[in-house]
Protein backbone atom coordinates (compact mmCIF):
# COMPACT_ATOMS: atom_id res chain seq x y z
CA UNK A 1 0.00 0.00 0.00
CA UNK A 2 2.75 2.36 1.05
CA UNK A 3 4.25 2.18 -2.41
CA UNK A 4 1.24 3.88 -3.94
CA UNK A 5 0.93 6.82 -1.59
CA UNK A 6 3.44 8.97 -3.37
CA UNK A 7 1.70 9.17 -6.72
CA UNK A 8 -1.55 10.06 -4.94
CA UNK A 9 0.11 12.88 -3.06
CA UNK A 10 1.50 14.12 -6.33
CA UNK A 11 -1.82 13.92 -8.14
CA UNK A 12 -3.62 15.73 -5.37
CA UNK A 13 -1.17 18.59 -5.35
CA UNK A 14 -1.10 19.06 -9.07
CA UNK A 15 -4.76 18.53 -9.53
CA UNK A 16 -6.03 20.77 -6.79
CA UNK A 17 -6.88 23.84 -8.80
CA UNK A 18 -9.97 22.78 -10.61
CA UNK A 19 -10.99 22.82 -14.18
CA UNK A 20 -7.74 23.67 -15.87
CA UNK A 21 -6.59 20.13 -15.23
CA UNK A 22 -7.49 16.89 -16.88
CA UNK A 23 -8.56 15.09 -13.73
CA UNK A 24 -12.03 15.98 -12.50
CA UNK A 25 -13.15 15.58 -8.89
CA UNK A 26 -14.98 12.42 -9.88
CA UNK A 27 -11.81 11.07 -11.52
CA UNK A 28 -9.86 11.84 -8.41
CA UNK A 29 -12.34 10.03 -6.21
CA UNK A 30 -12.09 7.03 -8.49
CA UNK A 31 -8.31 7.20 -8.41
CA UNK A 32 -8.37 7.11 -4.61
CA UNK A 33 -10.70 4.18 -4.66
CA UNK A 34 -8.48 2.31 -7.10
CA UNK A 35 -5.42 2.90 -4.95
CA UNK A 36 -7.02 0.67 -2.35
CA UNK A 37 -7.87 -1.86 -4.95
CA UNK A 38 -5.84 -1.68 -8.14
CA UNK A 39 -7.90 -3.25 -10.94
CA UNK A 40 -4.65 -4.54 -12.45
CA UNK A 41 -3.98 -6.80 -9.47
CA UNK A 42 -5.97 -9.58 -11.09
CA UNK A 43 -3.95 -9.30 -14.31
CA UNK A 44 -0.74 -9.59 -12.35
CA UNK A 45 -2.07 -12.58 -10.51
CA UNK A 46 -3.15 -14.13 -13.77
CA UNK A 47 0.34 -13.53 -15.17
CA UNK A 48 1.75 -15.48 -12.24
CA UNK A 49 -0.58 -18.37 -12.93
CA UNK A 50 0.38 -18.52 -16.60
CA UNK A 51 4.06 -18.45 -15.66
CA UNK A 52 3.50 -21.31 -13.22
CA UNK A 53 1.44 -23.48 -15.48
CA UNK A 54 3.20 -22.88 -18.76
CA UNK A 55 6.81 -22.39 -17.81
CA UNK A 56 7.36 -23.76 -14.33
CA UNK A 57 7.14 -20.56 -12.32
CA UNK A 58 9.87 -18.63 -10.56
CA UNK A 59 12.00 -21.70 -10.08
CA UNK A 60 12.24 -22.26 -13.82
CA UNK A 61 12.76 -18.55 -14.44
CA UNK A 62 15.59 -18.35 -11.93
CA UNK A 63 17.19 -21.40 -13.46
CA UNK A 64 16.88 -19.98 -16.96
CA UNK A 65 18.55 -16.78 -15.82
CA UNK A 66 21.25 -18.67 -13.92
CA UNK A 67 20.49 -17.16 -10.51
CA UNK A 68 19.04 -18.55 -7.28
CA UNK A 69 15.41 -17.90 -6.43
CA UNK A 70 16.57 -15.75 -3.56
CA UNK A 71 18.61 -13.56 -5.90
CA UNK A 72 15.76 -13.28 -8.36
CA UNK A 73 14.16 -10.00 -7.15
CA UNK A 74 17.40 -8.02 -7.28
CA UNK A 75 18.24 -9.58 -10.61
CA UNK A 76 14.82 -8.68 -12.05
CA UNK A 77 15.42 -5.13 -10.84
CA UNK A 78 18.32 -4.99 -13.30
CA UNK A 79 16.18 -5.38 -16.43
CA UNK A 80 16.47 -4.63 -19.28
CA UNK A 81 19.88 -6.31 -19.20
CA UNK A 82 22.35 -8.19 -21.36
CA UNK A 83 21.62 -11.90 -21.39
CA UNK A 84 24.52 -13.70 -22.95
CA UNK A 85 22.62 -16.70 -24.28
CA UNK A 86 20.11 -14.37 -25.93
CA UNK A 87 22.89 -12.27 -27.42
CA UNK A 88 21.24 -8.92 -26.66
CA UNK A 89 20.07 -6.52 -24.05
CA UNK A 90 16.48 -7.68 -23.60
CA UNK A 91 13.37 -7.01 -21.59
CA UNK A 92 11.68 -9.48 -19.27
CA UNK A 93 9.10 -10.21 -21.97
CA UNK A 94 11.78 -11.34 -24.40
CA UNK A 95 13.28 -13.63 -21.77
CA UNK A 96 9.85 -15.21 -21.32
CA UNK A 97 9.60 -15.77 -25.08
CA UNK A 98 12.99 -17.48 -25.11
CA UNK A 99 11.90 -19.72 -22.24
CA UNK A 100 8.81 -20.65 -24.20
CA UNK A 101 10.87 -21.60 -27.25
CA UNK A 102 13.35 -23.55 -25.16
CA UNK A 103 10.49 -25.54 -23.67
CA UNK A 104 8.97 -26.17 -27.09
CA UNK A 105 6.00 -23.89 -26.49
CA UNK A 106 4.54 -21.26 -28.72
CA UNK A 107 5.91 -17.76 -28.31
CA UNK A 108 3.44 -15.25 -26.81
CA UNK A 109 3.37 -12.01 -28.80
CA UNK A 110 5.16 -9.12 -27.12
CA UNK A 111 2.20 -6.83 -27.58
CA UNK A 112 -0.44 -9.23 -26.29
CA UNK A 113 -2.37 -8.78 -23.07
CA UNK A 114 -1.19 -12.19 -21.92
CA UNK A 115 2.43 -11.10 -22.24
CA UNK A 116 1.69 -7.81 -20.45
CA UNK A 117 0.27 -9.84 -17.54
CA UNK A 118 3.25 -12.18 -17.36
CA UNK A 119 5.69 -9.29 -17.61
CA UNK A 120 3.85 -7.44 -14.84
CA UNK A 121 3.97 -10.48 -12.60
CA UNK A 122 7.68 -11.08 -13.10
CA UNK A 123 8.55 -7.41 -12.57
CA UNK A 124 6.38 -7.35 -9.43
CA UNK A 125 8.74 -9.96 -7.93
CA UNK A 126 11.12 -7.01 -7.58
CA UNK A 127 8.60 -4.79 -5.78
CA UNK A 128 10.17 -2.49 -3.16
CA UNK A 129 13.61 -3.01 -4.72
CA UNK A 130 15.62 -0.20 -6.22
CA UNK A 131 16.63 -0.66 -9.84
CA UNK A 132 20.05 -2.30 -10.17
CA UNK A 133 20.82 -1.32 -13.73
CA UNK A 134 24.56 -0.85 -14.21
CA UNK A 135 25.11 0.87 -17.52
CA UNK A 136 28.83 0.27 -17.20
CA UNK A 137 28.46 -3.46 -16.59
CA UNK A 138 29.32 -4.33 -20.17
CA UNK A 139 29.55 -2.74 -23.60
CA UNK A 140 26.10 -4.08 -24.56
CA UNK A 141 24.15 -2.35 -21.82
CA UNK A 142 26.18 0.80 -22.38
CA UNK A 143 25.27 0.74 -26.06
CA UNK A 144 21.63 0.10 -25.26
CA UNK A 145 21.53 3.02 -22.82
CA UNK A 146 23.18 5.29 -25.39
CA UNK A 147 20.72 4.22 -28.08
CA UNK A 148 17.85 4.83 -25.66
CA UNK A 149 19.10 8.28 -24.77
CA UNK A 150 19.59 9.15 -28.44
CA UNK A 151 16.12 7.87 -29.29
CA UNK A 152 14.72 9.97 -26.44
CA UNK A 153 16.40 13.07 -27.78
CA UNK A 154 15.80 12.59 -31.50
CA UNK A 155 13.23 14.95 -33.00
CA UNK A 156 11.01 13.39 -35.61
CA UNK A 157 7.46 12.95 -36.82
CA UNK A 158 4.78 15.26 -38.13
CA UNK A 159 5.48 17.96 -35.56
CA UNK A 160 9.24 17.61 -35.24
CA UNK A 161 9.11 16.66 -31.56
CA UNK A 162 11.29 14.40 -29.43
CA UNK A 163 10.52 12.87 -26.05
CA UNK A 164 12.80 15.54 -24.67
CA UNK A 165 10.56 18.29 -26.08
CA UNK A 166 8.04 17.47 -23.38
CA UNK A 167 10.12 15.64 -20.80
CA UNK A 168 13.20 17.81 -20.35
CA UNK A 169 13.95 19.11 -16.87
CA UNK A 170 13.24 22.73 -17.80
CA UNK A 171 9.57 22.16 -18.55
CA UNK A 172 8.60 19.58 -15.96
CA UNK A 173 5.45 20.70 -14.17
CA UNK A 174 4.37 22.98 -16.98
CA UNK A 175 1.03 22.26 -18.52
CA UNK A 176 0.41 20.74 -21.92
CA UNK A 177 -3.27 21.22 -22.64
CA UNK A 178 -4.62 20.44 -19.12
CA UNK A 179 -1.90 17.80 -18.46
CA UNK A 180 0.98 18.64 -16.14
CA UNK A 181 4.21 17.25 -17.57
CA UNK A 182 5.64 14.64 -15.24
CA UNK A 183 9.28 14.35 -14.23
CA UNK A 184 9.83 10.82 -15.51
CA UNK A 185 12.47 10.18 -12.83
CA UNK A 186 10.62 11.49 -9.79
CA UNK A 187 7.35 10.05 -11.06
CA UNK A 188 9.19 6.74 -11.09
CA UNK A 189 7.84 6.01 -14.57
CA UNK A 190 10.31 3.18 -15.10
CA UNK A 191 9.41 1.69 -11.72
CA UNK A 192 5.62 1.94 -11.93
CA UNK A 193 4.82 0.34 -15.27
CA UNK A 194 3.21 -2.10 -16.00
CA UNK A 195 0.34 -0.08 -14.61
CA UNK A 196 -3.39 0.13 -14.74
CA UNK A 197 -4.21 3.00 -17.07
CA UNK A 198 -7.55 4.45 -16.03
CA UNK A 199 -8.15 6.23 -19.33
CA UNK A 200 -7.59 2.97 -21.22
CA UNK A 201 -9.17 0.66 -18.64
CA UNK A 202 -6.38 -1.85 -19.05
CA UNK A 203 -2.95 -2.99 -17.96
CA UNK A 204 -0.26 -1.29 -20.03
CA UNK A 205 3.51 -1.76 -20.04
CA UNK A 206 6.21 0.90 -20.13
CA UNK A 207 6.96 0.31 -23.81
CA UNK A 208 3.26 0.43 -24.57
CA UNK A 209 3.14 3.78 -22.74
CA UNK A 210 6.01 5.07 -24.89
CA UNK A 211 3.94 4.14 -27.93
CA UNK A 212 1.09 6.23 -26.54
CA UNK A 213 3.26 9.33 -26.38
CA UNK A 214 4.64 8.66 -29.86
CA UNK A 215 1.15 8.34 -31.29
CA UNK A 216 -0.12 11.48 -29.58
CA UNK A 217 2.86 13.55 -30.62
CA UNK A 218 2.79 12.19 -34.22
CA UNK A 219 6.10 10.36 -33.97
CA UNK A 220 6.04 7.12 -35.98
CA UNK A 221 5.19 4.42 -33.48
CA UNK A 222 8.06 1.95 -33.24
CA UNK A 223 7.51 -1.71 -32.33
CA UNK A 224 7.73 -3.13 -28.82
CA UNK A 225 10.91 -5.16 -28.35
CA UNK A 226 12.98 -3.26 -30.92
CA UNK A 227 16.49 -2.27 -29.86
CA UNK A 228 15.34 1.34 -29.64
CA UNK A 229 12.38 0.49 -27.39
CA UNK A 230 14.53 -1.64 -25.10
CA UNK A 231 17.04 1.22 -25.03
CA UNK A 232 14.31 3.71 -24.12
CA UNK A 233 13.24 1.40 -21.31
CA UNK A 234 16.83 1.22 -20.04
CA UNK A 235 17.13 5.00 -20.20
CA UNK A 236 13.80 5.81 -18.54
CA UNK A 237 14.38 3.14 -15.88
CA UNK A 238 17.74 4.67 -14.97
CA UNK A 239 15.92 7.99 -14.41
CA UNK A 240 13.78 6.24 -11.76
CA UNK A 241 16.90 4.61 -10.39
CA UNK A 242 18.65 7.97 -10.01
CA UNK A 243 15.55 9.38 -8.31
CA UNK A 244 15.63 6.34 -5.98
CA UNK A 245 12.10 5.31 -6.81
CA UNK A 246 11.44 1.72 -5.74
CA UNK A 247 9.75 -0.70 -8.10
CA UNK A 248 6.01 -0.81 -7.41
CA UNK A 249 4.02 -2.97 -9.80
CA UNK A 250 1.25 -2.61 -10.82
CA UNK A 251 1.21 1.18 -10.92
CA UNK A 252 -1.94 3.19 -11.24
CA UNK A 253 -2.10 5.94 -13.84
CA UNK A 254 -4.64 8.44 -14.94
Amino acid sequence: MKKLLLPLALMVTIASSGEQFAMSDADRAMYKEMLENNPADIFVEEGGEILDEMLGGEEALAKFLGVSEKELPKYIAGFPRYIKKLGNVVGIDQVLQAMQIEQGKEKTKLKSGKMFSMLAYVKSLANDEQFTIDINADEHIKASYDLGKTTFETARGGRGLSCLSCHSADIVGQVLRTQPLPDLGKAGAGATWPAYRMTKSSLRTLQRRFQGCMKNALLKVIPIGSKEMVGLEVYVSTLAQEAKQPIAIPGLKR
Partner: peptide, 22 residues
Amino acid sequence: ASDLTKAYDMPDASKLIEKDLL
Protein backbone atom coordinates in the same frame (compact mmCIF):
# COMPACT_ATOMS: atom_id res chain seq x y z
CA ALA B 1 20.48 -26.64 -26.09
CA SER B 2 21.95 -23.25 -26.57
CA ASP B 3 21.03 -21.18 -29.57
CA LEU B 4 18.36 -18.91 -28.18
CA THR B 5 19.58 -15.82 -29.97
CA LYS B 6 16.63 -15.97 -32.36
CA ALA B 7 14.11 -17.32 -29.89
CA TYR B 8 12.48 -13.98 -29.15
CA ASP B 9 11.15 -11.04 -31.13
CA MET B 10 13.32 -8.01 -31.71
CA PRO B 11 11.75 -6.17 -34.63
CA ASP B 12 13.73 -3.56 -36.53
CA ALA B 13 12.83 0.05 -35.84
CA SER B 14 15.84 1.81 -37.29
CA LYS B 15 14.34 2.23 -40.76
CA LEU B 16 11.09 3.61 -39.34
CA ILE B 17 13.02 6.15 -37.34
CA GLU B 18 15.34 7.01 -40.21
CA LYS B 19 12.41 7.95 -42.45
CA ASP B 20 10.76 9.91 -39.67
CA LEU B 21 13.69 12.20 -38.80
CA LEU B 22 13.28 15.95 -38.62
